[in-house]
Computed example of a mutant assay.
Amino acid sequence: MIQPSAAPPPFSPFFFYNATFEPQEVMRRHAATGLVPNPQRLTNFLGVLIDPRFFPSLLDNRAGEVEGVPIPANWHADIAEWGAALRAVDLAGDSFTVIELGCGWGCWLNNTGVAARRLGKRPQLIGVEGDKGHLAFARQSTAENGFGSDQVTLHHGIAAARGGVALFPRQHQAGEQWGLEAVFGASAEQRQQAAAAGSHEELPMVALRDLAAPHARIDLLHIDIQGGEATLIEEALPQLQEKVAYIVVGTHSRPIEGRIMDTLHKAGWLLEIERPAILDMHHNGQRVVVDGVQGWRNPALHQPDPRR
């Protein structure tokens, strides 16, 4: 997720991505026409309705607006992430199954689900989220965007390669903080300390293999779990190889980007688009101010793309 910031400048860093396809063409092709403003919601270029209270500091007073195609970026994502997610929709067959790890308000469930539905594909949306308030946002948003209860499965937990117990920070008001980090595989001592302080909620670690088990194929796995991406991909690689056709991952450091590239390249995956994490070099060396993005295609589950 792009962190709160001013509008991108004319020479935006979000134009600096590497890709094997044309993500801007993909975005423009998926843009809905004839959208009608909703006075209580922000409507994006795909026709997805977003309640401004999900992001009060970013979307205040934007109800009733219809956004244009977000090139190079909007308040939430940039060309690389939009292009990668919609690329997965294009490559899917008659159905479209998406799993979003760290789903928040259901951003990529809604965006890719709406895009797939417009193409006549049958969407199935699966999300995992640690913040119960954000999970309520996801329930609300998927319903408001026309997905029935039989099309949506949401889990209150922490996505991981295997089961266990994790601790997740509590916040008083959903939407105030995004990007909270879980403590994976919490020890008994950590769990006792968190319970005494009331600072964290104890949640199950939801294994990727269990999420994928009911489905023959996952057309898109979107991963944004605040620093645990490389470990999950390394540990869940057998499940990814077998069932996941496309991965879009938010990367939270340059070392994470390198680890993912090493793991998936060695396993035969194709990196189709990437924009590295954007750094601020003026705070004790460097810090990530915007997550990176990588889009990976599993050639074992795709026929050759005739458009390439």
Rank of each mutant, 00 (worst) to 15 (best):
I278F: 07
W269P: 01
F168C: 08
R287K: 10
H302D: 10
N18Y: 05
E100P: 01
A159M: 08
G148A: 14
D94W: 01
A143S: 13
N284V: 04
K121S: 07
E235Q: 12
G106T: 14
Q177T: 10
I260N: 00
F21L: 02
P238R: 13
S149F: 00
N38P: 01
R41K: 15
Q286M: 09
I50Y: 04
K266D: 02
I223P: 00
Q239G: 06
V165I: 15
H30E: 12
L135A: 09
F14T: 01
F16I: 08
P306S: 13
N38A: 15
G47H: 09
Q124C: 13
P70L: 08
L221N: 12
E25D: 11
G102E: 09
D51T: 13
G227R: 05
M205Q: 15
N298D: 10
R307E: 14
E272P: 00
T251W: 01
E129T: 13
E229Y: 12
T20M: 06
F14I: 01
A80H: 03
P204V: 08
E25T: 07
I223F: 00
G34I: 07
V48T: 11
Q226S: 08
D131F: 04
K266S: 09
A88Y: 02
N61L: 09
Q239A: 11
T142A: 08
E229A: 14
W178N: 05
W105T: 09
H134F: 04
Q303F: 09
G64M: 08
I225M: 03
M281E: 05
Q173Y: 03
V69R: 00
R117G: 12
W269I: 12
G146P: 05
Q294M: 15
I71A: 07
N61H: 08
G34E: 07
A166V: 12
T20K: 14
I260D: 00
N145Q: 10
E235M: 05
R191E: 11
L232F: 02
V26P: 00
G102Y: 01
V128W: 04
S141W: 08
G198C: 06
H155D: 08
I256T: 09
